[in-house]
Design a protein around this nucleic acid. Structure first.
Lengths: 250, 250
DNA sequence: ACAAAAGTGTTAGTTCTACACCCATGA
DNA sequence: TCATGGGTGTAGAACTAACACTTTTGT
């Protein structure tokens, strides 16, 4: 990259920030969970060539709800809409806004101003969302972001700021959510088998469930509809295929 | 009150706000629960002579954690320390910062500037705390606050902004907390009887529990220590007195 | 000895857990 | 007809909820 050009871009972004009337000191971060090849993943963005990653995030406009800002941010980033979003945590530590890796990286490249700007005190309101990895095309037109990664939650790369903590909190919230109110919508391709659903739960809870009891528990919830059987040409009983029943808006 | 003097105070407060380096657009609000005479109460502050009340709240310094700000705020307001505090909600609607009652009141009194200042976009991070009403001496040296009130949660007066919603969310969080992790520390004077504890639960959950089963459930949790019996001079078996067992910091 | 409230017991119903058993399928 | 994975059944444990019984207390 051309440093001068980048600098200009940054100045422009900084100006945009005020022109667009964004709330200062505040941002949203979203932990985007996906489920792929029997693993629970989160979307991360790579920061320059540092080897460190960060969560996607954005700012809040002065005239929009914080929830709206999270939805808009998600849409801008992934083009997805009507996604389940939940506010689960506020990252508000005074020290969280500065990360030596970021400071060092920007200093090396001659971006002192950007560095101090990026290190301003920032409180982040954190959301979690469940998405289908295949339907997501992350937007990478963001300064210093070199690529994206769907990272296995059990094996996260080094993360900037307090993003590791945020992901841990997101996971424990996801677990209690799946246990009680919400479903695995958006994480599984319909139709799916009971075995598929169980593997998803095992990835989320990071433990095994007893097959027969898991099945009974799920069926008793009255959220699954059988829509046929799956003949894979394998030498065993064909499993039922399921969809999630339409849930009335609550 | 002398309007001119109040105006000066406000200007001063406004300046203080910047001098003290407070985060803009952000505040904390605390829902202070107490339990008194078999009722669950919340601390409210009366706004002028409007007949409307509001939750106590404050701002966040640039160099302090959001959690610290909530603790400091609580201490400044009630002189209480080492209180269980939990962040349970972010009030982030764009429209929430303006309340016609507040605007009207200030306009009538000739405080247009204050009105617009108070109506600036504000996102509030909401905490709940459990306190002993008798140990709390609310600080009333705050502009426009005429008095305070411990209001029964089942019978709230009219509240400003979205504070009614915030209290509802706080209550449902308190319920799930008492159900699972935390105890009734700070809400009951030790020692207490099982009947006292049950009445507290009934005030919080707003429903009756079966006496014998409630007792068994509580005893099974292994959180209560018997410390004697209570002889009240009444013609029945003296109930055991309990304290909460010391819990190891987690 | 009585009433009142506290403490404990009992019973039936439900839910959980592990595991056994049968069923459908393609080789 | 066999191995494999899927679906259902079942016995025992654990937990609930309602209510009965016993104990303690001051009158």
């Amino acid at each position: 990259m051309d440093p001068e050009k980048n600098h200009e871009i940054n100045i422009k972004q900084s100006e945009d920030r005020f022109r667009e009337n964004l709330l200062p000191s505040l941002s949203v971060n979203t932990v985007l969970f996906s489920y792929h090849q029997e693993r629970l993943n989160v979307l991360l963005l790579k920061f320059g060539d540092t080897g460190y990653f960060m969560l996607p995030g954005g700012f809040i406009r002065r005239d929009e709800d914080v929830d709206e800002a999270a939805l808009r941010n998600l849409k801008e980033l992934t083009a997805l809409e009507n996604i389940y979003l939940e506010q689960f945590y506020v990252a508000g530590n005074a020290e969280r806004s500065t990360d030596p890796v970021v400071v060092e990286f920007l200093k090396k490249q001659g971006y002192e101003k950007i560095s101090s700007w990026l290190s301003q005190r920032n409180v982040s309101i954190c959301y979690l969302a469940l998405v289908n990895e295949k339907k997501v095309k992350p937007e990478l037109n963001v300064q210093f972001i070199s690529r994206y990664l769907w990272a296995d939650v059990t094996n996260l790369p080094p993360l900037l700021f307090d993003h590791t903590t945020i992901i841990e909190k997101a996971l424990s919230r996801l677990q209690s959510d799946m246990d009680q109110k919400l479903l695995s919508n958006n994480l599984l391709n319909e139709p799916f088998t009971m075995s598929d659903l169980q593997k998803l739960y095992e990835a989320v809870f990071q433990k095994k469930f007893t097959r027969s009891n898991f099945q009974r528990k799920m069926l008793k919830r009255d959220i699954l509809a059988r829509v046929g059987k799956k003949y894979e040409g394998r030498a065993h009983k064909a499993p039922y295929l399921y969809r999630f029943k339409k849930v009335k808006a609550s």
